[in-house]
Amino acid sequence: MAELNVVRLVIVDDDPLVRAGLRMILGGTGDVDVVGEAADGRDAIDVVVRERPDVVLMDIRMPRMDGLAATRRLRDRGSPARVIVLTTFDTDELVFTALREGAAGFLLKDTGPADIVAAVRRVALGEPMLSPSVTSRLIAMATQQGDDSRRHTARALLARLTDREREVALAVAEGLTNAEIALSLHLGLATVKTHVGSVFAKLEVTNRVQVSRCVHDADLVPEQDTRSS
């Protein structure tokens, strides 16, 4: 996070009107500083490397280099910037690809201003952000397109977890924050953070969205007493 808890933000979209609208929405909040813009993925990489933002709002479909390729290259460069993918959801597979590339959140382009601001703040704090309709669509797609191979892989990964880590993974998949998990499982916040880190390592993922995808790939549903201790 930037000094004084101001979120440094880069906006990436090939439509100048979209960029202007997002700048207007986010620039007037007082705790979000739009430090750069780019019209395609290639320029986005240069801007992110130069400005070192906390969060990047990244369009998917752009000329020269799309948002997925840019997200992957930023990840490969070790950039700490957290990417929120902006999507119209016109191609479902793009969303799954973005998950694999390490996107920390998804927003539809028709998301309301207040929700966009909330998403940027939440992702800057290290929490994932999925539009409710995106979450529902992802789960539905995972069910419709699920095959034995993917389900087997996900369950094999989850089998590496201890009972407590499994509880934490299920809670993460439900969208709970670390603080909410701590309260629900009667654990200290530091303990939850340790468990989340272990879950990331054992599931071979880099963010909470990917944990959620693994849980849903495995077709797991929390049991009634999962959240008690």
Rank of each mutant, 00 (worst) to 15 (best):
152 H>K: 10
129 M>C: 11
202 K>Y: 04
206 T>R: 06
4 L>N: 15
31 D>Q: 14
83 V>T: 08
171 A>S: 07
96 F>P: 14
70 A>T: 09
34 V>T: 04
75 R>T: 00
191 T>H: 05
190 A>N: 10
80 P>K: 09
112 G>K: 11
121 R>W: 03
175 G>W: 04
187 L>D: 07
194 T>Y: 08
76 D>K: 15
106 F>W: 10
68 L>K: 14
116 I>K: 00
176 L>F: 06
152 H>C: 03
153 T>A: 04
206 T>Y: 03
202 K>L: 01
87 T>N: 03
62 M>K: 11
188 G>T: 05
119 A>G: 08
46 D>L: 15
88 T>N: 13
143 T>P: 04
191 T>P: 07
1 M>K: 07
111 T>I: 06
78 G>S: 12
78 G>R: 10
49 V>R: 15
116 I>T: 04
210 Q>F: 06
184 S>H: 07
27 G>M: 11
225 D>M: 14
83 V>S: 10
7 V>S: 04
93 E>I: 15
160 R>I: 00
76 D>Q: 15
135 T>L: 10
225 D>T: 14
222 P>H: 09
108 L>G: 11
136 S>D: 11
107 L>K: 03
90 D>E: 10
220 L>Y: 03
154 A>Y: 06
166 R>T: 08
58 M>S: 11
70 A>R: 12
205 V>P: 04
83 V>E: 01
79 S>V: 02
100 R>P: 03
